[in-house]
């Protein structure tokens, strides 16, 4: 007696798409992104408290480590961090509105597009200010 079900026939999924990739719903992806940005921020916080704790060792030790943060590569990582935290914050507000606002569930999808819009509007000038010096250092000019 076979213990496994017969494999799905090709016709089963072919009606919409020929591939097998699960596309999901934007709501699911917003949840996935919330988890990923949260975990990344948690790991960053671990390192960040350790580096700041160097102020208890000596000014030289702290300054030496902070100096390595003033490089173009780390500037790019900063943009990533700010972007991750900003998404997590905006989506967190969305989650709260869905939970506590009577019309939240109804508007969860437009709220997702709105938060992505806000994210973009904040990140473009934010990235500009964070990368300004790195760009000058890398490509010269004043």
């Amino acid at each position: 007696m076979p213990t496994t079900a017969s494999p799905p026939t090709a016709a089963a999924g072919a009606s919409r798409r020929s591939g097998t990739l699960y596309i999901g719903d934007p709501g699911m992806w917003s949840w996935v992104a919330h988890r990923i940005t949260g975990v990344l921020t948690f790991f960053f916080l671990f390192v960040h408290v350790l580096d700041t704790a160097l102020v208890r060792v000596s000014p030289a030790a702290y300054n030496a480590v902070i100096e390595t943060y003033k490089t173009p590569l780390v500037a790019l990582l900063e943009v990533g961090l700010v972007g991750a935290v900003l998404y997590h914050a905006l989506n967190g507000i969305r989650v709260m509105l869905v939970d506590f606002w009577s019309k939240g569930p109804k508007y969860q999808r437009p709220m997702l597009w709105s938060l992505l819009g806000v994210w973009l509007v904040v990140m473009v000038p934010g990235a500009f200010f964070m990368l300004q010096r790195a760009a000058t250092e890398l490509f010269g000019g004043h």
């Binding site: 702290y62 902070i66 943060y69 780390v74 961090l81 900003l86 200010f129 964070m130």
Partner: peptide
């Protein structure tokens, strides 16, 4: 967000941070 704005974006961002700043 206030912390990130002050530390990373305003007034030169990370480039002005050192022991004296802290």
């Amino acid at each position: 967000l206030g912390h990130l704005f002050i530390m990373n974006i305003v007034d030169g961002g990370v480039h002005r941070i050192d022991f004296a700043f802290v």
